[in-house]
Every structure is written in structure tokens, then in C-alpha cells.
């Protein structure tokens, strides 16, 4: 019975099981490792081409797919029940947290984060409200582990998304200019492997010969890729933020940033969300470059400005290669 209950819950077969089960107390109980420090072979390592900036954390990711992904909707892959994904965050060579996404039923996902112990031997489940003070990332600046409600701001409420494991993120047409792009190491799974191992079904037949790629010159491609991973999780028309029209997905970003927005750059009467040729008037850059709690973007998950991204986006807005007449 003690082993049957979680299994029943996971299958959604328990009468009236509407809620997801509780996550295990220790990371070592989640199925990530075969032995201490040894990741189980069934968990496939991968690296999205456009990573999320978390104050310079080094990240490692693994996914377990008990069956094939339904890839018919290229922008919304449907993962099999039982899917688990992990992301490990390390600062200064020390593991700080490992996050878990676990699909326990057709519409239920467990979100959890585990904080690593001093000895780096295992990690303990973080309370629902998060852990504000998990590690120092720079003198006086502390990395906070988000609350489980915060996870859903980016990963979705009803329709949960595995944000780094998408057709675009795994595309073999990898962006060499991606900001903080991580090289593919041997053994990392790609779109090609997924197809070869029959772990992706019903995708379009030319997915591998015409893989997803953000259109535009190299600077635009890298800028839009960055905004997709770091901003479009919240700024997208299909999950509207009341009162905002901003959609930072690659196909919509240039169109929806033309307006003035509701939060102008201080002291800039001509402020726009993005003003081609004028980084100093662009609220998007101002907010990326701020870590004061009112203005900073993203509003959570980071305490340090992503200087490489600010520099790239500033140059990109100044040169405005996306404006034909420029």
C-alpha cells in the first residue's frame, strides 16, 4: 500500500485525486540519481540554446521521458504523464538549488525546488513560499529560491510548459550568437536524437530539414532569442497581463514595443517601450538594466543586472538593424 498510493495518485486513478501529490522531501528521492552523485542513465542531459539568466549561475538540466512527446503543436508540445525535468543551479562551483518539474497527471504538474546542503551530498525540499536567502552571488547580493507560485508565473498556470525543452530551444540550427549560450556537450540530447529515439511523435515531417530559427540578422536573432527565454514567459498575448499589450515572443516583439507603455524612462519625454536608434529612450532597456525592486525586469529570479545582455540590446537598439530604412 505505501508504494501503491503514490503510484495511484500519479496515474490520477485515486478516486477524487484532483490535486498533485506532494513532492518528495529529498532530491535523492526524486529519481534523478542512480547512486549518490551519479545521474541515472534514463535522465537525458540537454542545454536550451537560449538560457534563462540567473545572476550567472552555472546550470545543468536533465529530462526523463517515460513515453513520446506529442509534437503536433510545435509551440506547445504535450509531454507524457510521468515526465520529470530537473535544473541544477551552481554559484562559484557550489550547487545551490535543483528545481523539479514533474507531470503527475494529464493536467497536473508538481513544482519543487531543493536546496543543497553544506556537504553537497543531498538537497532538501524548499518550503512552498521559497527561500529568500539561499546563497551569496556577489558581495551583499543573495540568490533567492522562488516560491512555487512564482514558478507558475513563468511556467504557466493551467497549461504548464517545459520552457527549455521546445522545438526552438533544441533546434539543431543553434544560434552561435545566443547570449550565455552553452555549448552542446557529448551526450546532450537534441531534436535529432528525439526523433531518432521515437520520443517525439506527430511533429511536421520537415522538422529536421527546416528546424525552427528566429528570423533576422545575427544581432536581431540573438536579441529576440534572449527576450523569448527571459521575458516572453510572462509577456505573451495568450497569457495577458491586465492593461499591458506587450508580447515579447520573437514574432510579436518588434510590433508590440512601438508604444509608449505605462512606465516611461525617467526624464525622457519621448520614451517608448523600444525606440529604434535610441537606447536611452527605451523603457525595455531601462528596465532590463535596473535592479531597483520597482523597475527591474524580470521582476523575480535575479538580483544582478545581466550586463552582457544589456550591452547587446543597447547596441542592437542603437543600430536598429531591424528597421529597413536605418
Amino acid at each position: 500500500m505505501p508504494t501503491l498510493l503514490p503510484a495511484l495518485l500519479a496515474l490520477g486513478a485515486w478516486p477524487g485525486a484532483a490535486k498533485a501529490p506532494a513532492p518528495p522531501r529529498l532530491l535523492s528521492q526524486t529519481g534523478l540519481y542512480a547512486a549518490p552523485g551519479l545521474v541515472a542513465a534514463r535522465n537525458l542531459p540537454y542545454a536550451p540554446q537560449y538560457p534563462l539568466w540567473t545572476d550567472g549561475a552555472a546550470k545543468a538540466r536533465w529530462i526523463h521521458l517515460p513515453a513520446a512527446i506529442d509534437g503536433r503543436d510545435e509551440a506547445g508540445w504535450v509531454f507524457p504523464v510521468g515526465t520529470k525535468a530537473w535544473k541544477e543551479f551552481a554559484f562559484g562551483g557550489r550547487k545551490v538549488e535543483t528545481r523539479l518539474l514533474w507531470k503527475t497527471g494529464p493536467g497536473t504538474w508538481v513544482f519543487a525546488s531543493y536546496a543543497w546542503n553544506e556537504a553537497q551530498t543531498d538537497a532538501v525540499l524548499v518550503p512552498e513560499g521559497g527561500l529568500p536567502d539561499a546563497a551569496e552571488v556577489a558581495p551583499g547580493l543573495r540568490h533567492g529560491i522562488p516560491s512555487r507560485a512564482d514558478c507558475r508565473d513563468c511556467h504557466g498556470q493551467e497549461r504548464v510548459e517545459v520552457l527549455g525543452f521546445t522545438a526552438l530551444q533544441l533546434s539543431p540550427d543553434r544560434d552561435p550568437g545566443a547570449l550565455h549560450g552553452e555549448p552542446l556537450r557529448p551526450g546532450m540530447i537534441t531534436l535529432k536524437d528525439l526523433v531518432a529515439r521515437r520520443l517525439l511523435r506527430r511533429a511536421r515531417p520537415d522538422l529536421l530539414s527546416r528546424p525552427p530559427r528566429i528570423a533576422g540578422d545575427p544581432a536581431t536573432r540573438a536579441a529576440l532569442g534572449y527576450l523569448q527565454a527571459n521575458c516572453a514567459t510572462c509577456h505573451r498575448a495568450d497569457r495577458p497581463i491586465p492593461g499591458l499589450d506587450l508580447d515579447l515572443r520573437p514574432a510579436h516583439a518588434l510590433r508590440t514595443t512601438a508604444g509608449a507603455g505605462s512606465f516611461p524612462v525617467p526624464g525622457q519625454p519621448e520614451s517608448r517601450i523600444l525606440s529604434p536608434g535610441h537606447p536611452e529612450r527605451s523603457a525595455l532597456l531601462h528596465r532590463m538594466g535596473s535592479r531597483d525592486p520597482i523597475a527591474q525586469m524580470p521582476p523575480l529570479g535575479t538580483v544582478r543586472v545581466d550586463q552582457a545582455a544589456v550591452d547587446h540590446v543597447r547596441r542592437w537598439i542603437a543600430d536598429a538593424p531591424f528597421v529597413p530604412s536605418h
Binding site: 505605462s262 512606465f263 537606447p279 535596473s290 531597483d292 523597475a295
Partner: peptide, 15 residues
């Protein structure tokens, strides 16, 4: 009625 955006105590300029 469009309420103004809040103002931070000490705005950090763009580096």
C-alpha cells in the same frame, strides 16, 4: 483614471 506608476526610492541609472 490612469494612476501613475510608483517611483523607486533611488532610481538606478542604466549603466
Amino acid at each position: 483614471n490612469k494612476v501613475p506608476a510608483p517611483i523607486a526610492p533611488a532610481p538606478t541609472p542604466i549603466p
